[in-house]
Design a protein around this nucleic acid. Sequence first.
DNA 1: AAATTAATTGAAAATTATTCTCATTTAATA
DNA 2: TATTAAATGAGAATAATTTTCAATTAATTT
Lengths: 148, 148
Amino acid sequence: MMKDFECTQESYTKEVLREKGLKSTTQRLAVVHILHMSEKSLSIGEIHGGVKDMLGNTGLATIYRTLEMFEDLGIVKRLHFPDGGHGYAFSQGEHVHHMVCVDCRGVFDFSECPAENFDYASVEKQGFRVKDHFIQLFGQCGKCVEAA
Amino acid sequence: MMKDFECTQESYTKEVLREKGLKSTTQRLAVVHILHMSEKSLSIGEIHGGVKDMLGNTGLATIYRTLEMFEDLGIVKRLHFPDGGHGYAFSQGEHVHHMVCVDCRGVFDFSECPAENFDYASVEKQGFRVKDHFIQLFGQCGKCVEAA
DNA sequence: AAATTAATTGAAAATTATTCTCATTTAATA
DNA sequence: TATTAAATGAGAATAATTTTCAATTAATTT
Ligand SMILES: [Mn+2]
Ligand SMILES: [Mn+2]
Ligand SMILES: [Zn+2]
Ligand SMILES: [Zn+2]
């Protein structure tokens, strides 16, 4: 059998898993592949469907377990949509933020941080300490702008 | 019976509802009151509990309906926690962001926008148009910093 | 103040989302 | 190839959210 082409995302994931003593299972690598292939964010159900297409039957619980783990590891990011739904997007373990299209759920990530030179001290009242931030930009992708 | 003191949040809500031809029901005003009183963000269940304490039996569906409506109207903001849970916080219809304590879910809102002078054009690739953004700061509140 | 009426509610069922359990499988290592 | 701890799958169990529809109520009109 021909060895699959291994993209940056796949080898990155394997490396992170190995470092943590976690296994690089086919299911986990399939999740990475599905997300990596997609230009839009995917729901749990869509990821599950994609993995089943690749591997045949796969437990939904495994998808939940994998995504939670990947989020903790910084491999994927969970996005929150105005309609209450959620999507997942690859984030390569770097500090990236996402622009999401509210029409098609397409995603574009970017590494410039919108809060780059924000003075956190100005809002750290009453001893509050800012440790992290979540930023998500909403809008329409090029295609959806035209289609509208 | 003595007329209740009407705070800014309550009269603001009534006004928004009236403008939209929506009714200022006791349930809706109770939700505003509960959120306004709380220094932390509240889950759907907590809000439901609070409203039941004020009014006696209240349908959970009403709480869901109210919060969705309030979010659309900009009266409340839904917050997203790292553990996957959600909380709601009053937002007075203004453009505010929230700092949340990951330990106690306490919230502080602030009107300075961390992305104030971010150059959106720099990330609007391929025709993407940014229309809105969601920013949430994570950290620990003063109490939880001490307690830790 | 009563009548009117469209909006809203409550209750329960229905649906959807998420987690748990545990027997079986599998990736990593020796 | 044998060993073993980690991971999976199946399905049950929970939790979260939405739907339906008859009954109630806030706002408006007599
Ligand atoms: Mn950032
Ligand atoms: Mn969310
Ligand atoms: Zn789009
Ligand atoms: Zn706290």
